[in-house]
Design a binder for these strands. Structure first.
Lengths: 366, 366
DNA sequence: CTGAAAGCGCTAACAA
DNA sequence: TTGTTAGCGCTTTCAG
């Protein structure tokens, strides 16, 4: 071939610190040797001791820093997993914190970093997903995603996914959940066993699968005990504090003059806690006058000694990472993999201080 | 098998989806044109409408996805900020959640992603910092870092930093904090004004600047009121629930038979909340028998209606991102910048339900 | 208006 | 044991 034009040394807008090439030059070896020594590339064992040392010295002298971006580009791997969830400024999300804690821990254990994609809502997720799965992460955890099946079909296929508490099973995405119905069943069973009959369930949104399962548990426990649920005692709403406040307030308004429920079963701890607030504001005592129980066992519940159903949120986060990393590895090695549809973890009754026997005389709603 | 000369089209371990080159080929234009159209590179306006459309079509057809890693490498910018903090599995960190919420929000507003580096302790941070600042993030927020000055000197200098609640001002790192001393002062002032005299301050670690400031506020308020602090009523410990439990239990043990404090001022909400627990376990009522107040105004405190000092944690997170992004921009454009040392936000007294006048008769510690 | 070429920093494959 | 070459996918000069 023709002579190499050999252009000028190029100004090199020296952004990054020293590069492998720099180190190599300094040590009088190739960049590749430096790579082998410094970043443990495949050939690392084949470098002689003296060369090794020269390279180490040069690296130290030039304060060499590997560049993750470049490595990621070459490797097609960033060692970073993503977590996508809705994150609202007005109400802090305990649930998120608990799961996230597990994710962080699992990721650290697997040598992965974690980047968070904060969404305002799930439609936004559908839009942004392609941009999210653009090489910066190796896999993504969807945290209680609310995606349509069509959206699920359009998930980028070069990125492995795992979901936690998905509202809808997505094709090819392992979902981690807990046996919420069993949890709600057990909780309701305990309430009934104590003698409670008018148990108000402040439920989540009717189109949430989780909310449905909790309602199902509530109803099943009644059926199992041969007790018909108190009529009108399932009030749908949402999982948040504010929604809980609205739902309960409204329910009370619509039931003025009627007997106060003996127990209130919130669809989440937030709902239960705000119910306690509202009862206290009315001069009622918990649990002497009304028992209140929740669902999730988040931090606020624990510090309030709320009786609740524990979902192993941290474990769910851990598990999600584990499964995701497995899938990433498999994909990396082009290994076949059979995707597990679901992993269901157990829920557990947590005895707090907000559950007691019903009082003898019914209170009337003021 | 044997013929080889012709360097084959290269198997191209087809990892990533379609590339710009693919799109260009499909549309019969150069990759560069595709880049201009699809990713809004500098020259984007100079592409003719028809070409534009052809490229768009081709991109859609091939399901082109930009690759952030490649772009990051070329741009030397990932549009990602990092947050480094210690994260322990055994105790959930409310403080983190609050600040993080602000960070997430700020980052989203600035079009940045957020990646979390979970550390077990700050020495680990010093070790990992070089590896963290390796091109994957454009800047880093240190969340209540506890770094020595020497460590501060060794911070990689190609990455801008911002700290929140740093225990030690780091050179060239803007620190965001709140006027904790003023907050503690005001809280103590209120306690004294209500008539409290034996105020037990369950403080943080003596070597924490934040703990020191809270103690300073406590003492200053006494001085301002002309009331000598009750002797032995500052007990050092740590900011966590467990540490709070230990500290209070121990203190009570050492003061058996002496009067119970009229009020307890926890260095954090966690400490205050666990103090309430311990009091209740001893059959005491809060606030009728003992007032309990905290510091931070985290979620658990709010749901417990704890009287506390609010630190604007979310705002601090927002501000941190803002400042960091500014610095990143400045750096990108090689603009000179004068680094602000500190930003101090205001704290605020939050009236809850755990503060009342002291009871007339002193209780004795059992 | 468009394309060719070079390079961001690193790694794998192949020679030497 | 070491160096050379050729990308990873994208962007930015600089020519046409």
């Amino acid at each position: 071939m023709s002579e190499k034009p050999k252009p000028k040394p190029k100004p090199r807008r020296t952004r990054h610190a020293a590069t492998l090439a720099d180190v190599g030059r300094e040590a009088g070896v190739s960049a590749m040797a430096a790579s082998a020594v410094l970043n443990g590339a495949t050939t690392s064992s084949r470098i002689s001791q003296p060369t090794r040392e020269r390279i180490q010295e040069a690296a130290a002298k030039l304060r060499y820093r590997p560049n993750a971006t470049a490595r990621g580009l070459a490797d097609r791997r960033m060692n970073t997993i993503g977590v996508a969830t809705t994150f609202s400024a007005n109400e802090l999300n305990q649930y998120f914190l608990e799961v996230f804690n597990g994710v962080i821990e699992g990721a650290a254990a697997a040598g992965q970093n974690t980047t968070v994609f904060a969404l305002t809502d799930w439609p936004e997720c559908e839009r942004r997903l392609p941009a999210i799965c653009d090489g910066r992460i190796d896999g993504l955890i969807l945290l209680s995603p609310w995606l349509s099946l069509e959206a699920g079909d359009k998930l980028p296929d070069h990125t492995p996914f795992v979901s936690v508490h998905a509202n809808q099973l997505l094709p090819g995405v392992t979902n981690i959940e807990s046996d919420e119905e069993a949890g709600a069943f057990e909780m309701t069973r305990q309430l009934l066993a104590l003698g409670h009959r008018r148990i108000l369930h402040l439920a989540g949104p009717p189109d949430s699968i989780g909310a449905q399962r909790r309602v199902a548990g509530y109803l099943a426990a009644h059926a199992a005990a041969g007790v018909p649920p108190a009529p009108g005692h399932v009030q749908y709403g949402h999982f948040t504090t504010e929604a809980g406040r609205r739902a309960f307030t409204e329910w009370l308004l619509h039931h003025q003059g009627q007997p106060m429920p003996e127990a209130i079963f919130g669809a989440t701890d937030s709902v239960a806690l705000v119910a306690i607030d509202l009862l206290v504001e009315r001069g009622l005592r918990v649990p002497q006058d009304v028992s209140v129980v929740g669902f999730d066992d988040t931090l606020a519940a624990r510090s309030a000694h709320l009786t609740t159903v524990r979902q192993p949120l941290r474990e769910m986060g851990l598990r999600a990472v584990e499964l995701l990393v497995q899938r990433i590895e498999a994909k990396q090695q082009d290994k076949p993999e059979r995707v597990i549809d679901q992993v269901v973890l157990r829920t557990e009754f947590v005895k707090g201080r907000t559950l007691a026997k019903p009082r003898k005389l019914a209170l009337l709603i003021a």
